[in-house]
């Protein structure tokens, strides 16, 4: 099988200073790759390099290439302008480190992006919304208050809403920046099992700060330090908790 994302020789600079350098990384469909590393090591920046969101920041430069290989649809380097920016970002869904709900109703948070970017209307729209909310296990909690403001949800609910919003857009690649950072133990466990279910359909790159979570969900772990990928581990390295911890400590 060929990888869905191939990053090669990637370098990202903020104000002339390299935040990521010499990154080579491939992501395969059906697998969860977890990115770990100390705070400020460039994890979020690497995620944003895959949907070109770094371009939002002033004085950011990106070099190298990020190629997407989406089944029968698209094939090429996203930095060569071969795919329209809005298409790219719709196919590469992203959930932020802190929940980023839109200041509208819960329902509108999911339907409006669908209307605007996909052009869905009517019953197809409600169907998708319901499905997405069910998938993140939020449906039962919000089905009676779909019209109330999304800001009234708790942090964990907001984060799940963001995930639902992304899933509703049916992307092919999922970028998750610490999706369980603001969740309690139980909701985190639910998101984890959701991710394990989703991984059949998606290519997932997630950031995590929790080693135990990493062990539970990761098929592969990449360690980032000071902007460089310094180590990769697969399931075998994680099988034994001692060896895994040893490896991680050496890496950090």
């Amino acid at each position: 099988m060929e990888p869905a994302v191939v990053i090669s020789n990637l370098e990202v600079l903020f104000f002339g200073k390299a935040v990521l350098k010499d990154i080579h990384l491939s992501l395969w469909p059906g697998r969860i790759t977890v990115l770990v590393g100390p705070s400020g090591s460039g994890k979020s920046t690497l995620l944003r390099a895959i949907n070109r969101l770094n371009e939002f920041f002033p004085d950011c430069q990106t070099r190298g290439s990020v190629s997407l290989h989406l089944q029968n649809q698209y094939h090429g380097d996203i930095y060569q302008n071969t795919i329209p920016l809005s298409d790219l970002r719709r196919r590469v869904g992203m959930v932020f480190q802190t929940p980023a709900v839109l200041p509208f109703s819960i329902e509108k948070n999911i339907t409006m992006p669908l209307q605007v970017t996909v052009g869905l209307t009517g019953s197809a729209l409600t169907e998708r919304m319901t499905r997405a909310l069910q998938e993140v296990a939020l449906w039962d909690e919000v089905k009676d208050r779909l019209k109330s403001s999304a800001n009234t949800l708790s942090g964990g609910q907001q984060q799940r809403l963001c995930l639902a919003r992304v899933l509703a857009l049916e992307p092919q690649i999922l970028l998750l920046d610490e999706p369980t950072a603001s969740l309690d133990y139980k909701s985190a466990a639910r998101i984890e099992s959701l991710l394990l279910n989703l991984k059949e359909r998606y290519t997932i790159l997630a950031i995590s700060h929790s080693l135990s979570q990493t062990r539970r969900i990761a098929d592969r772990v990449c360690v980032l330090r000071q902007g460089q990928l310094i180590q990769e581990m697969d399931r075998n390295d994680m099988a034994d908790i001692r060896t895994f911890q040893g490896l991680m400590e050496a890496a950090f």
Binding site: G93, F96, T98, A100, P113, L169
Partner: peptide, 11 residues
Amino acid sequence: VLRLASAAMGF
């Protein structure tokens, strides 16, 4: 974050 989030959805 509003702009970032909506851009990330392909707006």
